[in-house]
């Protein structure tokens, strides 16, 4: 009896996409550790910072984690947000321009951050209004804002890669608290806030209801339009935050490359985390795992000495593997194998 329940529990666990994401991370880290036994070592440097590969991975994962959270909410409503990469570059461009004009004080850093977030919120609101009130498809709407957004960032910086210096700003992106990178702590804090916001209230359920059946949710009295605008605004703002950090770590915005195609990585993280693109049930923890997996993969490929330009090929392998594991056809076959197993035990 207990054996069956354990097996059932294992089966249930195996069908959770989140677990496969974790397994993939562990496998990648194991490969790296085989090559260099000290790979997972974390040291406390004299300056009071923790250094080591795992810390590096967390630092790289942070911006992706932020945009993946916003993307999860958008995808849960049955939408998609292709414009987050452009939100990132706008956030970066605005903050760098503000800092260049500012006096380098903490106040100017806060002002730069504030204005950057405000503008990306407006970008998200445009998406939201077009999807919710005008009734355009999310894919096309956000494709428009993605194209226009990157153009806007270039207009803001007049096509230049603007650099600036501001100690407070730099600290947010590169600094540490108790040895841990600030940027990852902030990403973690955002994760916790979002999870608390949607899971301890009915908000998450309402968002899922829109994704499962917009008509039914409207009949049930869900304020679909406001919720849609809200998730696109959240996605835009989180894109802005991610952009500020991505540019803050080098204190330069590269208008052609900051956040380029990162929306695809974010969508990938969301799907790896078990949220279907058709909308409905979503997993924020899954998206976080997905973001960590992608960051780990990026680092692994570089660590193994493969040209970083070839990273996408490895991403493809991971996506295909995870998609196949989650696909109904394969799962059916696997479950048949699993059903046969106990019979063998009986004969033995």
């Amino acid at each position: 009896m207990t054996a069956t329940t354990t097996r059932e529990r294992l089966g249930a666990l195996a069908s959770t996409p989140l677990v496969w994401g974790l397994v993939a991370i562990v496998v990648l880290l194991a490969i790296n550790s085989l090559r260099d036994p000290g790979y997972l070592g974390v040291e406390l440097a004299a300056s009071g910072r923790l250094t080591g590969n795992p810390i590096d991975i967390l630092r790289t994962a942070a911006p992706l984690l932020m945009i993946a959270l916003g993307m999860t909410l958008v995808v849960a409503t049955g939408g998609i947000d292709l414009s987050v990469g452009s939100a990132m570059v706008i956030g970066g461009a605005v903050s760098m321009e503000m800092l260049q004009a500012g006096d380098g004080s903490v106040g100017s850093a806060m002002a730069a951050l504030g204005v950057a977030l405000l503008i990306t919120a407006v970008l998200g609101a445009i998406n939201g209004v077009l999807v919710a009130f005008v009734g355009l498809q999310p894919f096309i709407t956000t494709l428009v804002t993605m194209l226009a957004g990157r153009g806007l960032a270039k207009v803001i910086t007049e096509g230049q890669n603007t650099s600036a210096s501001n100690e407070a700003f730099r600290w947010i992106a590169n600094g540490t608290v108790l040895g841990a990178p600030v940027v990852f702590l902030i990403a973690l804090a955002i994760l916790v806030v979002v999870v608390v916001l949607v899971r301890t209230t009915a908000l998450g359920m309402l968002i899922e209801s829109i994704g499962i059946d917009p008509k039914a949710s409207r009949m049930a009295g869900v304020d679909r339009r406001s919720l849609l605008v809200a998730v696109y605004v959240i996605s835009g703002v989180l894109g802005g935050v991610a952009g500020v950090f991505a540019t803050g770590s080098v204190m330069t915005v590269d208008v052609s490359n900051t956040g380029l195609l990162l929306e695809l990585d974010a969508i990938l993280a969301v799907v790896v985390g078990g949220t279907a693109l058709t909308g409905g049930r979503f997993s924020l923890a899954g998206a976080a795992i997905g973001a960590l997996l992608i960051a780990t993969l990026d680092k692994t490929v570089v660590f193994l000495g493969v040209s970083s330009a070839a990273t996408p090929a490895f991403k493809a392998v991971v996506i295909v593997a995870l998609c196949l594991l989650q696909s109904a056809t394969i799962r059916e076959r696997l479950s048949r194998v699993r059903l046969r197993a106990p019979r063998r035990e009986v004969t033995a």
Binding site: V271, K315, A316, C323, S327, I330
Partner: peptide, 14 residues
Amino acid sequence: FGVQPFIATLAMMF
């Protein structure tokens, strides 16, 4: 395999 077109072709793109 019932993979969503967006994801399947995204994988092929990568």
